[in-house]
């Protein structure tokens, strides 16, 4: 209980800090909204050009992209701030975080207020609702469960990717934008049906790294479509398991990383 109050205090401190710069807050809000709309538009444009992509119609493609962006937006909203870790490591701000009686990860997450990112999550959920209606999904209890669990599992999965790629900074301070290849790159990968990709690239990202289970497989299960790539129907329900594995790996990487923290001279 006491710890929750402590985190609430950190949150309110950040809220009041952000509120002291109102103009930049509004500007942030607008750019983020614009970013999400662009993501969806990119998919629409692609389907306008070709009518169907790898055998998927516009509506079906929209379902994939909306599941992906729901997961990503939720993860970005909750732990996305962690990608600032490299700045904190480089400047030694981590010192101040580590001398407080709280876990480091939640503190870092609360060091920046992501209210602006909440807007992205709202847009993503709205697109999901539209996509579900366009596809005339036949509702069963399993699918009802799936439509809730898939975005949440996607959020956990992307959250894990955020943490792992941010942890790079503990070993490699100049990791720069490399982490983004996995976070934003992963999101872009999951935005399209997996059959769009081919060869080792597909094998690595979709199956070995698990990105295929975030949006594509759950979308198939919601649509009641057989996987052209041959995975059974229940593969659509694997996303929570994949997310848990990713979260486990992220926890180990984070713990190892924080012991490698080397601070800066002062």
């Amino acid at each position: 209980m006491g710890e929750l109050r402590a985190y609430a205090a950190l949150f309110s401190g950040q809220f009041r800090s952000v509120a002291s710069y109102r103009a930049s807050f509004v500007a942030d809000l607008v750019t983020n909204l614009f970013g999400t709309v662009l993501d969806v538009l990119a998919v629409l444009v692609l389907f306008r050009a070709t009518r169907s992509v790898a055998g998927f119609t516009l509506a079906q493609g929209l379902l994939v992209v909306s599941l992906s962006s729901c997961g990503f937006a939720l993860a970005d909203l909750t732990v996305g701030n962690i990608d600032r870790l490299k700045t904190y490591v480089r400047t030694g701000t981590m010192d101040a975080v580590l001398v407080r009686p709280l876990a480091a990860l939640p503190q870092l997450v609360l060091m920046d207020l992501p209210v602006r990112k909440a807007l992205r999550a709202v847009v993503a959920v709205s697109v999901l609702v539209v996509a579900l209606r366009l596809n005339h999904v036949e509702w069963t209890p399993g699918r009802a469960l799936l439509v809730v669990s898939a975005p949440l599992a996607g959020a956990v999965f992307f959250g894990a990717i955020f943490v792992i790629s941010a942890s790079l900074a503990f070993w490699w301070v100049e990791s720069g934008e490399i982490g983004h290849a996995f976070t934003y790159g992963g999101r872009d990968f999951t935005a399209y049906p997996t059959p769009v990709y081919s060869g080792w690239f597909r094998g690595l990202f979709a199956y070995a790294m698990g990105f295929g289970f975030v949006a594509y497989q759950p979308a198939l299960a919601l649509l009641g479509r057989a996987d052209p790539l041959g995975l059974p129907a229940w593969a659509g329900f694997l996303s929570p398991l994949v997310a848990l594995v990713a979260a486990g790996i992220a926890a180990v990487v984070w713990r190892t990383g924080i012991r490698h923290y080397r601070s800066t001279g002062s």
Partner: peptide, 8 residues
């Protein structure tokens, strides 16, 4: 005031 909550 915030530190009071952080340190309980």
């Amino acid at each position: 005031a915030l530190l009071r909550h952080v340190y309980r």
